[in-house]
């Protein structure tokens, strides 16, 4: 497993059965100055997001805004420019550029472009497709009933300290890149 990693880094994977234990581990690791670990969970828990990102909002919102603005401009553009191309065709005696009648198209384009850009933004920021994601994160228990905490590039010199924190916080299994398993009694 560690063959594909640079020699100076190490994988460490911890499996947790309890949410509060995982949150404690995140806090202690952060307090000890460790960064660069990933947490997996079978469901979205705001406590995890809060612990890791401390309320920083996702940048996906900018994609939504950009899409919506592009949509409303495009909606106005296509309706007014195509109407202006044939100014003599004047259905119902309406003005050539008739905002009340074009508002529906502008609204629909706002939603459509906003939605599609949100989707693209989500794909970009989540890193999907993630078929080549680190093997340590590809544990089927993480979509079932277990939480995971994974270092994919830890400094080998920190190994003992990290493992000690993970064990002390109630991990049911801790595995390192060299496949040593640290069993935790009474987990």
């Amino acid at each position: 497993m560690s063959a594909s990693l640079p020699a100076e880094t190490l994988r460490i994977k911890a499996v947790y059965g309890h949410l509060d234990c995982l949150l404690t581990a995140i806090e202690r690791l952060k307090h000890s100055g460790f960064q660069g670990f990933q947490v997996t969970s079978p469901l979205p828990r705001h406590e995890i997001e809060e612990a890791l990102y401390e309320g920083r909002p996702s940048p996906v919102r900018w994609w939504t805004l950009t899409g919506a603005v592009t949509g409303i401009v495009s909606g106005f553009g296509i309706t007014s420019l195509t109407a202006a191309a044939w100014p003599m065709a004047n259905p119902g005696g309406k003005p050539v550029v008739s905002l009340p009648t074009f508002a529906v198209i502008m609204f629909e384009c706002t939603i459509l472009f906003g939605g599609l850009c949100t989707f693209i933004g989500m794909i970009v920021h989540t890193g999907l497709p993630a078929w080549g994601i680190d093997k340590a994160l590809q544990d089927p228990r993480f979509s079932d009933d277990k939480f995971g905490l994974v270092f994919t590039g830890a400094n080998p010199g920190d190994r003992e300290r990290i493992v000690a924190i993970l064990q002390a916080t109630g991990a049911v299994e801790v595995t390192t890149g060299d496949a040593t398993v640290y069993e935790v009694p009474n987990a």
């Binding site: 469901l43 939603i111 949100t118 989500m122 920021h125």
Partner: peptide, 24 residues
């Protein structure tokens, strides 16, 4: 798309889901 439920994936997924709900 190889979803693994990482913190990064859930974070942006939930944000996008909320915006989708607001648009829909």
């Amino acid at each position: 798309f190889g979803w693994r439920g990482t913190d990064r994936q859930w974070r942006h997924f939930m944000a996008a889901y909320g915006f989708f709900a607001a648009l829909a």
